[in-house]
Design a protein around this nucleic acid. Sequence first.
DNA 1: CGGGGGACGTTATACGTAACACTTGGAGGC
DNA 2: GCCTCCAAGTGTTACGTATAACGTCCCCCG
Lengths: 338, 338
Amino acid sequence: MARSSTRPTSRDVAQAAGVSQAAVSLVLGDKWRGRVSETTAERVREAARELGYRPNLAARNLRLGRTRTVLLVVPALTTEFFAGVYTGAARVAARHGFGVVLYPSPEGIGPARDPFASAQAALDGVIASSMAADALTAIRGDQLPLVMLDSDPEGSLGAATVNLDIADGVRQVTEHLLGLGHRHILHLAADVPSWTFEMRARELAARLAAVPGTQIRTAPAPISIEGALAATEAALTATGPRPTAIVCDDDKLAAGAYKALRRLGLRVPDDVSVTGLDDLALATALDPELTTVRLDAELFGERGMEALLAVLEGREPEAGDIPVELVVRGSTAPPRTP
Amino acid sequence: MARSSTRPTSRDVAQAAGVSQAAVSLVLGDKWRGRVSETTAERVREAARELGYRPNLAARNLRLGRTRTVLLVVPALTTEFFAGVYTGAARVAARHGFGVVLYPSPEGIGPARDPFASAQAALDGVIASSMAADALTAIRGDQLPLVMLDSDPEGSLGAATVNLDIADGVRQVTEHLLGLGHRHILHLAADVPSWTFEMRARELAARLAAVPGTQIRTAPAPISIEGALAATEAALTATGPRPTAIVCDDDKLAAGAYKALRRLGLRVPDDVSVTGLDDLALATALDPELTTVRLDAELFGERGMEALLAVLEGREPEAGDIPVELVVRGSTAPPRTP
DNA sequence: CGGGGGACGTTATACGTAACACTTGGAGGC
DNA sequence: GCCTCCAAGTGTTACGTATAACGTCCCCCG
């Protein structure tokens, strides 16, 4: 029996099986075909089982110079959306023998300057959702292979990007509302400095500008129910004609809009139509159920991981945005004719 | 200039600064007081900065025999609740120079037998939320220091435990409803084999049994809005007197109950009162806002991490459950007198 | 009967870091 | 003048693994 206080090593297994450490490595690494006899291999496996042997990952990582671990940087964990992204990424990763480590962006967790101070794990690459440019350059400084999710393809410092076709989602929402007859729209905009939100505002404005007689107003709000409530209430009690529809950057914002409308005595969709974006569980918990743009978070995660694997293997990542789909529910209707 | 293709090592830094590798290690490890002169130390730091040196974590982990990385096993990432637990754990961890890696339980991600197959990172310890017993024994088999969240203190194989005082939450809910005059209660129970849910059912039954004239019925449902909707609808259309209050194991279940009641033409709280448990953002998105038990997820995570640090340092973890608090909102009212 | 080549291993080495044990050149004490 | 001591480092080793390179046997073929 070896030292019982410490974890058994491959050398301990070797001694127990009466072979060399190299043989243990070969057998357990599944590289023994034609190099070790079946009986010896079985003896090694038996010894490993007996001792409860687990390879030391730090040693393996050092030896191989790679870790088969990847970091997923997300802006926060507070929505199901990034849970879905993680699930998809982890599924693809597992198929390729990779693990995924999460790093929620440094809001209240240590210094923002160094995204890796808190993620001690040694890494092969990084998948990062839209984040501020300075954090991005910090990551690039680490020379790690990088895939950006939902980021400006032009300005991402040459990193590979995987994007949802949110511009198309905005198009679908706009056409849906215009088709119903809406002409006066309030954009409840996420007050977060990020390419994706700026792009949504631009796209929405451009779509509406193409139709004469339309008006748009923008109300920025932090992404929380309370924040959206306040912003919506302020925007609707302001002077001028009342919007007949509210386009929200996010389902959570839509939930806040619902509350504001209720507080003002307005009904959805009779007085005001509301649309969201994400299609979280929240969307169907609301009454009436929310018309929103469904984003396939898991597919997003899968495509992100596949892109990173491609970069790691020196291949070209698959191009093309991920399609999104408008889900029409009960929160949109034609505007009441005045 | 060293080999530019590969990452610089401490030896490269040493060469650039004209010192030995050992000196670099001392300076960068902040152990140089009285061993290296201030001028040399500065020269080393300068060289490290120049080359963009980052220590190889795999090598450090191997050398030190520890990783300062901890695994947090959560049942799923689909709720804000575990996002909060993570945030709290990561905050405490960062204060002690630790990192936290997340491992969502193996639902659709690789083989359930080996929770670590997907988490390649080398680990110092594990924090695990309530999970099936076989997964637990698998973890124990790895000999890693373990803290269990919200698990049976008796049956957790000697691991340290940190618990929310959910029994007290159930007490508060029960007393609130009994005080309002409710006597016939439906328990919308999470259909998940877990100590914490079994405990809630037991506690609820015991509390009600102490009051003569009360009735309780149980409807098990998967933790999803759709599942809760179906279960509630089935339970309410069954024969017998209709419950006047629904106690849900979870806010998400409550959202499903709301939908079922709406579909049946019943109003909250006039016809039926509803309570939840968690106090997610969802609770205030509902109309009327949900009376629920607030769990302090971040504090839960902090206490979990502190307990693990205590175990790692050979100390005794702090004892005592984390208090929870009933938040009364608009979803509970006295039953209508028939 | 010589030797070519499988089958079955072993020996040796490197990955990058941290820490222990050791050296060197003076300064100071008596 | 010799011993001691300290500052300021250096040389060396070990952590546990994976793999390239190197031995043996022994069988079989020409």
